[in-house]
Deep mutational scan, measured.
Amino acid sequence: LRGKKKEELLKQLDDLKVELSQLRVAKVTGGAASKLSKIRVVRKSIARVLTVINQ
């Protein structure tokens, strides 16, 4: 992550946020259990990207 440019990080952040919103919709509509663990992974990925951006 640290080797990427800021523009790439921001694009990745947008993609992750879109994916997270889709997973939340799937959870509300009764999605599979595998998607519940994926939510945690995506949230941590967002946190990692934000950490690198803010450093």
Rank of each mutant, 00 (worst) to 15 (best):
L1V: 04
L1T: 03
L1W: 15
L1S: 09
L1Y: 13
L1G: 13
L1R: 03
L1I: 00
R2F: 15
R2W: 13
R2N: 02
R2M: 15
R2H: 02
G3H: 07
G3V: 07
G3Q: 10
G3N: 08
G3M: 14
K4M: 14
K4F: 14
K4H: 06
K4C: 11
K4Y: 06
K4L: 13
K4P: 07
K5C: 13
K5W: 15
K5G: 07
K5F: 14
K5H: 01
K5L: 15
K5T: 07
K6S: 05
K6I: 15
K6H: 00
K6P: 01
K6N: 01
K6A: 07
E7K: 10
E7P: 08
E7T: 07
E8S: 14
E8L: 14
E8H: 08
E8G: 14
L9E: 06
L9T: 02
L9Y: 02
L10P: 06
L10A: 04
L10I: 08
L10K: 12
L10C: 06
L10N: 03
K11N: 03
K11G: 03
K11T: 01
K11L: 01
K11P: 02
K11D: 02
Q12K: 13
Q12C: 11
Q12I: 13
Q12R: 13
Q12D: 08
Q12W: 13
L13Y: 02
L13S: 05
L13W: 08
L13R: 02
L13M: 07
L13K: 01
L13V: 05
L13G: 05
L13C: 00
D14W: 12
D14G: 14
D14E: 06
D14H: 11
D14K: 15
D14T: 15
D15L: 13
D15M: 15
D15A: 14
D15H: 15
D15Q: 15
D15N: 12
D15Y: 11
D15P: 01
D15W: 14
L16E: 06
L16D: 11
L16C: 05
L16H: 04
L16A: 06
L16V: 01
L16Y: 04
L16Q: 05
L16G: 05
K17Q: 03
K17C: 02
K17P: 02
K17N: 02
V18K: 13
V18R: 15
V18T: 12
V18Y: 12
V18A: 13
V18D: 07
V18W: 09
V18G: 10
E19M: 15
E19F: 13
E19D: 03
E19Q: 15
E19Y: 15
E19H: 12
L20D: 06
L20V: 06
L20S: 06
L20E: 06
L20M: 06
L20G: 06
L20A: 03
L20K: 04
L20F: 04
S21Y: 04
S21N: 08
S21V: 05
Q22R: 11
Q22Y: 01
Q22I: 03
Q22F: 03
Q22W: 06
Q22C: 06
L23R: 07
L23T: 11
L23Q: 07
L23Y: 02
L23I: 04
L23W: 14
L23V: 03
L23F: 08
V25L: 11
V25S: 06
V25K: 08
V25F: 09
V25A: 06
V25D: 04
V25I: 13
V25P: 07
V25H: 03
V25E: 09
V25T: 04
V25M: 12
A26C: 12
A26S: 11
A26G: 08
A26P: 07
A26V: 14
A26N: 05
A26E: 03
K27M: 03
K27A: 09
K27S: 07
K27T: 03
V28L: 14
V28I: 13
V28C: 07
V28H: 03
V28F: 12
V28A: 05
V28T: 09
V28K: 07
T29M: 15
T29N: 05
T29R: 01
T29K: 04
T29F: 12
G30T: 12
G30I: 15
G30H: 14
G30W: 11
G30M: 15
G31K: 10
G31L: 14
G31E: 08
G31H: 09
G31P: 09
G31W: 15
G31V: 12
G31N: 09
A32E: 03
A32I: 14
A32P: 05
A32T: 09
A33R: 11
A33T: 05
A33S: 06
A33V: 11
A33F: 14
A33Y: 13
S34Y: 05
S34E: 10
S34H: 11
S34C: 10
S34R: 14
K35S: 08
K35L: 15
K35I: 12
K35H: 08
K35W: 14
K35Q: 12
L36I: 03
L36N: 02
L36E: 01
L36P: 01
L36R: 02
L36V: 01
L36Q: 01
L36D: 02
S37M: 13
S37I: 10
S37V: 11
S37R: 13
K38F: 06
K38I: 06
K38R: 08
K38D: 01
I39M: 11
I39P: 00
I39V: 08
I39Q: 00
I39W: 06
I39H: 01
R40G: 09
R40Q: 04
R40I: 09
R40E: 03
R40W: 10
R40Y: 02
V41Q: 10
V41L: 11
V41S: 10
V41P: 01
V41C: 10
V42A: 06
V42M: 07
V42G: 06
V42H: 01
V42P: 02
V42E: 00
V42W: 11
R43D: 00
R43I: 09
R43T: 12
R43C: 11
R43P: 13
R43V: 10
K44E: 04
K44Y: 01
K44T: 08
K44L: 02
K44G: 02
K44P: 01
K44I: 00
S45K: 14
S45P: 06
S45F: 11
I46E: 00
I46L: 10
I46W: 07
I46H: 00
A47N: 06
A47I: 04
A47K: 09
A47W: 07
A47E: 10
A47S: 12
A47M: 12
A47L: 05
A47T: 12
R48A: 04
R48V: 00
R48Q: 07
R48E: 01
R48C: 01
V49T: 05
V49L: 11
V49Q: 00
V49H: 03
V49N: 00
V49P: 00
V49F: 07
V49M: 08
V49W: 08
L50A: 07
L50C: 12
L50K: 05
L50H: 04
L50T: 02
L50R: 02
L50I: 13
T51C: 07
T51W: 04
T51E: 12
T51D: 10
T51I: 02
T51F: 07
V52P: 00
V52T: 10
V52C: 13
V52I: 11
V52R: 13
V52F: 12
I53W: 07
I53Y: 00
I53P: 00
I53Q: 00
I53H: 00
I53C: 06
N54C: 12
N54I: 14
N54Q: 08
N54M: 14
N54P: 04
N54Y: 12
N54H: 10
N54F: 09
N54R: 13
Q55D: 10
Q55E: 08
Q55G: 11
Q55P: 01
Q55I: 12
Q55F: 01
Q55T: 08
Q55S: 09
Q55H: 06
Q55R: 06
Q55L: 08
Q55C: 00
